[in-house]
Structures are given as C-alpha cells and as structure tokens.
Amino acid sequence: MGANSKEKKLTSDILIIDDEADICLLVEGLLNDEGLKTRTASNAEKALAEVTARRPSLIILDIWLQGSNMDGLQLLDRFVRDYPEVPVIMISGHGNIETAVGAIKRGAYDFIEKPCELKRLNLLVEGAARSARAQRRLDNQTQEQNNKYSIRMLVGKSKAIGLLREMVKQVAQVPFSSMIITGETGTGKGLITNILHYSGTRAKGPLIEINCAALPRELLESELFGYEAGAFTGAKKRHRGLFEQAHTGTLFLDEIGEIDLELQGKLLKAVEELRIRRLGGEHEIDVDVQIIAATNKDLQHEVSLGKFRQDLYHRLNVINIHIPSLRERLDDLPELVLLFIAENNAKSSKNI
C-alpha cells in the first residue's frame, strides 16, 4: 500500500462488517498484509458492540448485511449520526451501484464492489485516512476558534454589557437566517459576529467576511456572487463568490449601509431565495448561509432618505443586536484595561 506511516496509524483499527465470512476474510487478509489491524463483525448487533467497546478509525460495511435487525444503510445512518468522525466505506455487490451512490449521499466516504480489488481498496483506505485527518484538523481549528471567540470575551459588569451578553448567548443557541448588528465604529461588531458563529449551530462551517465599503460596486458584486471565465475583461477562470464560499456557514457583510441601491436589489434576491447566479453564468446555484450584516449607520433613517431599500432592511433585520459604545459602559473600563494589557503582553512577550 502507498500509505505513509501517518495514514497507517490513522487506519490502524479497521472494523469490517459483512454477513459473508469469506468477504470478511478476504478484506481482512488484504489489509493485514499491508500492516493494518482489523476486526470483524457479521451482523449489526455485533458491529454496534464492537464500536461501543472501542471506536474504530475506519469502518468497511456491507450494504445489505442480511440476517441482522438493521441492514447496512440503516447501520450507516447510525454511524453517521453517532460517530461522524469515523469514515465508512460501503461494500456493494454487482448491480448495486445506484444504492451505493445513495449511501454516499447519506454520509458514506465511498464504496467498493465485490469482489474487492486490492488496488481499489488501498486507494479508498488511504483516502479515508486523509479525509479523517483533514476533518480532525478542521475540528481542532474550530475548537480553537470556539475557545478564542467565546461569550467570555464580552467582559464587564455594567448593565449594558450584561444585556448584550445575555442576548448574544440566546441568539447563538438558535439557528437564524439573517440579522443586523449596529453600533459605532470600534464597538466590536466583528467580535460579536465571531462569537455568534463559533458558538452557534454553524461553527463547523466557514465564516466569510467582507467590508462592503472597501470595494467599488463592480468589484463587490463579483466578489459576492462570483463569475465565470470570460464574464468580463480579466476574468480568465471561474471564481466562486463569497456566498458560495460561505456555504453551510456564515457570511458577514460589514458596513452593509455602503452598498449602492442597484446592488442592494441583487443582494435582496440572494437573501430571499438563498440562490445566486455568477456573473456570466447560465445557472442559479443554491447556497445555505446565515447572513450577519453590520453597520454604524441608522438604516431606518437611510431607508427614509431613499438610500437603503426597505425590503432588504426588513429581510436582513430578522434579529437586531445593538452594541453599546464605551461611554455607555464606563464601569467596564477597569476590566477592559486589564484585558488589553494581557493581550498586549501575550503578543509582545512582555510582562507589563
């Protein structure tokens, strides 16, 4: 096998689940010859007992698994639900390709047909090891961000920060489609966004940020929605926009009040339908994002002046969080000063 030592270590405990003893022996023999440790189970009950006793690094599972109280697909659903970090490779017989593809959609890593070919099996095991390692790395990064951007970052004992802390805590616990965060420049709108994302239901998804005031209208549109090759001069290859990049996560639109009215109309359609079309594209693309918009402007006043679309405002303003200025929370200054000193000491390796 071309697996390096790290990949072998990651797949050193493989559980093979198949009601056919000869298939178990075949797969077990192929993997043992490559220096990998394996276990076998002939039915769902034994498989669940094995996983409960010791979580495997990889599962190879027969699709049908006859003679059990659960077939392979039902068992797959159980593994995906209870052990999402463990990759599952399905074993399918000839003529079961459609079912095997369906298993991938339900969460399986991939599938292999009977009789198992050594080369194909090796490639799948190596790929599953890399996938598991990447997922662990992502989970670790997410956990680091969770620790960095927690509700504890909202320090202070003033009434204003207490109310803000309670609201952020409540909002983070429920899924939402969109929200607006308001507050003066420097009050921490970006910090609140990070806390909401990494403490919320989409913490494992990406957090994509853009400052809408930093880009001209045409460039902002192409960044948000992406473009196809040849869509305009200089568009040499396809570019996925920020809506696509934020799929399953959060899109943070800072300084939302700076977007011009024409682009606001296109943004409204994307927010309403969760569907976008790249510049120069022929097809619409579904996206699954929650949107956090931030501004230091009074958007209701902007609406009354005709500078911000009322329909976009109401679509975004499902939840509204206002961040108090420092002058509204002077009682928090002593704690904030200590926090800033500690952060500066950590960055500069000093002890002030």
Score class of each variant (00 low, 15 high):
182 T>V: 05
233 T>W: 02
129 A>H: 12
70 M>Q: 10
188 G>P: 06
3 A>V: 06
25 L>M: 11
133 R>M: 12
66 Q>S: 15
123 L>C: 05
204 K>T: 15
283 H>I: 05
322 H>P: 01
330 L>E: 06
48 L>W: 07
16 I>Q: 10
275 R>H: 01
134 A>D: 15
238 R>P: 02
329 R>K: 12
236 K>Y: 09
121 L>Y: 08
335 E>N: 04
222 S>N: 08
305 L>W: 06
153 M>Y: 01
283 H>S: 11
203 A>Q: 13
142 T>E: 12
324 P>N: 08
185 T>F: 05
244 E>C: 05
67 G>F: 07
320 N>W: 07
12 S>Y: 09
67 G>R: 01
66 Q>K: 15
233 T>I: 08
287 V>P: 01
299 L>C: 06
273 E>Q: 10
114 K>G: 04
38 T>P: 13
11 T>D: 10
289 V>G: 05
173 Q>W: 01
207 L>P: 06
221 E>C: 00
184 E>W: 09
320 N>F: 03
299 L>G: 06
3 A>F: 04
18 D>F: 04
62 D>F: 07
143 Q>F: 05
45 E>H: 10
161 I>G: 14
183 G>H: 05
160 A>S: 14
144 E>W: 03
342 A>C: 04
299 L>Q: 09
264 Q>S: 06
192 I>D: 07
55 R>W: 02
173 Q>R: 11
138 L>A: 15
10 L>A: 14
159 K>L: 14
282 E>T: 10
87 P>E: 12
105 K>I: 03
333 L>N: 07
54 R>N: 01
86 V>L: 14
63 I>K: 03
318 V>F: 05
68 S>T: 08
43 N>V: 11
14 I>R: 12
260 D>P: 02
66 Q>P: 00
52 T>R: 14
34 E>F: 02
348 S>I: 02
76 L>N: 03
283 H>K: 12
60 I>C: 13
273 E>K: 11
233 T>L: 02
214 A>Y: 07
89 I>F: 10
19 D>Y: 13
107 G>Y: 06
341 I>W: 02
318 V>W: 07
256 I>F: 05
342 A>Q: 13
10 L>Y: 14
35 G>S: 11
202 R>S: 10
128 A>G: 09
179 M>K: 04
61 L>C: 14
126 E>C: 14
179 M>I: 11
293 A>R: 01
114 K>S: 04
105 K>L: 08
57 S>F: 11
2 G>N: 12
95 G>M: 13
278 R>W: 00
96 N>D: 15
279 L>H: 00
134 A>P: 04
83 Y>H: 15
13 D>I: 07
310 Q>E: 15
278 R>S: 01
175 P>N: 05
288 D>I: 08
264 Q>R: 00
113 E>S: 15
338 L>G: 01
329 R>P: 14
239 H>A: 00
35 G>P: 15
307 K>F: 07
305 L>C: 13
184 E>L: 11
305 L>Y: 09
192 I>T: 07
299 L>A: 09
156 G>H: 08
119 K>V: 11
91 I>A: 03
261 L>F: 09
23 I>D: 05
20 E>I: 14
176 F>Y: 14
164 L>W: 07
287 V>L: 01
108 A>T: 06
1 M>P: 10
213 A>L: 03
225 F>R: 04
178 S>W: 06
290 Q>R: 10
340 F>I: 02
265 G>Y: 00
26 L>I: 12
236 K>T: 11
337 V>P: 03
129 A>V: 12
